[in-house]
Amino acid sequence: MNIFRLFGDLSHLAAIAILLLKIWKTRSCAGVSGKTQLLFAVCFITRYIDLFLHFVSLYNTEKVMKLIYISASVFTCYLIFFKFKATYDGNHDSMRAEFLIVPAAGLACLINTKFDAIEILWTFSIYLEAVAILPQLFLISKTGEAETITSHYLFAQGSYRALYILNWIYRYHYESHVDTIAIVAGVVQTILYCDFFYLYITKVVKGQKIVLPA
């Protein structure tokens, strides 16, 4: 474990917590893409499937973190699609998730480390995570604005994988550890946030709201 991965995971936890708080406190999921949250839930379940296959005692933080990620993302989907369904902006959350899931699944079968079920599920989860934020970014571009709290959520969510890139550089240099698939997908994922990062740093930090077109 290094400082970059630690802060990456903390940033990821913060993102999940910020979104849950926003929906719970405002009792509304306006401005939140339910599809992105569904895709994240799929990512966690397919990536941590080993938790279900051979359940081991919660003997380390990693198992606890995996369970937190899975339960928090499923609970977020429950809030969006059931509890606060009336506030779900389905009209603007219109990006076709199939256009993300199918290519990720196909690519996972073509480019993977080992052609076995668990490894392909892991690879699918990595590819899907890279593009899972697109419906959320698409929704913001359609509504033309993002609530400040949603911007903070996106900043934390984007920072998590950006910090992981620093972690991979660190691990390459000090542990000569390389996980090419995760690195390439992580770089693509972070690049998708660049436009948002620019808007966040030039606007939200100064107390302005993000309004598109910028």
């Binding site: 991965r5 990693e62 990620y69 076995d116 490894e119 996980d179 995760a182």
Partner: peptide
């Protein structure tokens, strides 16, 4: 050794 397919990151 066979690169363990174990991915040790979240």
């Amino acid at each position: 050794s066979q690169k363990s397919a174990e991915h040790d990151e979240l």
